[in-house]
Design a protein around this nucleic acid. Sequence first.
DNA 1: GCGAGATTGGAAAGTCAATTCCAATCGTCG
DNA 2: CGACGATTGGAATTGACTTTCCAATCTCGC
Lengths: 242, 242
Amino acid sequence: MQTRSSVEFRDRAASDESGRGRAASTEGGRRTRDRILQAAAQLMFRQGVAGTSIPDVQRHARVSASQIYHYFGDKKGLAAAVIEYQSAMKLEQQRPLLDHLDSIDALREWCERAAARLDAVHCAGGCEIGSLASELSDSDPSARVRLARAFAAWQEAIESGLTRMRERGDLAADEDVTALAGALLAAIQGGMLLSQVNQDATPYRRAVTVVIDHIADRVAAARAARSAADRRPGAGRDRATR
Amino acid sequence: MQTRSSVEFRDRAASDESGRGRAASTEGGRRTRDRILQAAAQLMFRQGVAGTSIPDVQRHARVSASQIYHYFGDKKGLAAAVIEYQSAMKLEQQRPLLDHLDSIDALREWCERAAARLDAVHCAGGCEIGSLASELSDSDPSARVRLARAFAAWQEAIESGLTRMRERGDLAADEDVTALAGALLAAIQGGMLLSQVNQDATPYRRAVTVVIDHIADRVAAARAARSAADRRPGAGRDRATR
DNA sequence: GCGAGATTGGAAAGTCAATTCCAATCGTCG
DNA sequence: CGACGATTGGAATTGACTTTCCAATCTCGC
């Protein structure tokens, strides 16, 4: 189940990784490692990390306990790997959209894509990263920074789109794109939480719509300012050129 | 610790309550019941429901296991009581502010109040309700509706303030105050999550600021439309009257 | 084909949590 | 006072989970 992707999870990002999990060196090993990771990701998303036991993962991945401990060291290591996996998964799946979030329509379509996914699963689970974040942030510091990185990558994708809009003149030169990107990400996370609780995607749709409407207002304001400046060639020349 | 309040938690809201927890009938009983509730609320907020064991609660409330089971039936019943407790707590503590969210300044001050609390605890825990929501929504249906009610009460407080602004003419008559209130609530929740993960209240402040700025823009737009209508007495009379 | 290291199965140790039960105490009402 | 229900303490039961360990099997370079 779950859109099977081609992301093979090689030896955990070169960064830190305090755990004692070994990387797989043979082909078969890589496959079981992946199978464990996918099962764990799915279960931890649906039932939370604390609600997912190792025997649970064993059953769903059809592996024995020793394999899990062999590849991930312990449960914390498995959770850490799941965070990286989900984060990479999201970025990978959405790359084509994420790289072109430089128009109001693109933002709307991207958010609506997520809304459709919510509809499809009747709002179960909320956001893969957000759920993990809420559960682990306070209890596991190393997971917290991992999750912070994941959110940062996400926010940067939004922000870079907005920056392009600003460079293009769709947004005023002094527009705080960081704040706008952060607000949109927050609306997404908060909206998904509310939708999960209400089992209805409407709260999510409303939240992102309001924020994107706000960005659209800023675009309109920038356009108005520009055309006003054009009418009075004396002032605001810098805003029109480039 | 934690702002001790006078909310005595009587016999769980008359609604459903499937659990077998008995209400306290003597004064001493009510005190221990309260002590358990406060300890459980604090622990479940800091460590999550799954991360909080009954022995944990026993130690922090200085009670024996039988007392917990006597008053709350089982762990699920305890969690349900904690949800109601936190929800009532929030409403109670913020009543003076919640009842006057009918101006941009009031909205800003209310949100900043929460931001100051985040600063004070270094963003640990996020939102008391939001954390529980993320953990329990998918696993415990009865907890889910309880949480949905809590959020709804909250959102209604915001919405009624906006409605008053609309009636007063600060917002256009066709303004969708439900969407605006929902967006603000989502920004609060999402912002708190991001702040928790980043251990920095900035993401929260940015998110709520953007949404409130948007509402402020709507107020300005309504004012502009009104004064334009005043200048041309022929059109848009309905908008000015009442 | 051989051997080192990778991979796997399954049992077992040790811990701890959820819940039940029973007996003891306390308070209060008649 | 006496009894009855509310309250409390603490042990006992039951089950699950994390983690370790050892032996068996497999893979692949040589």
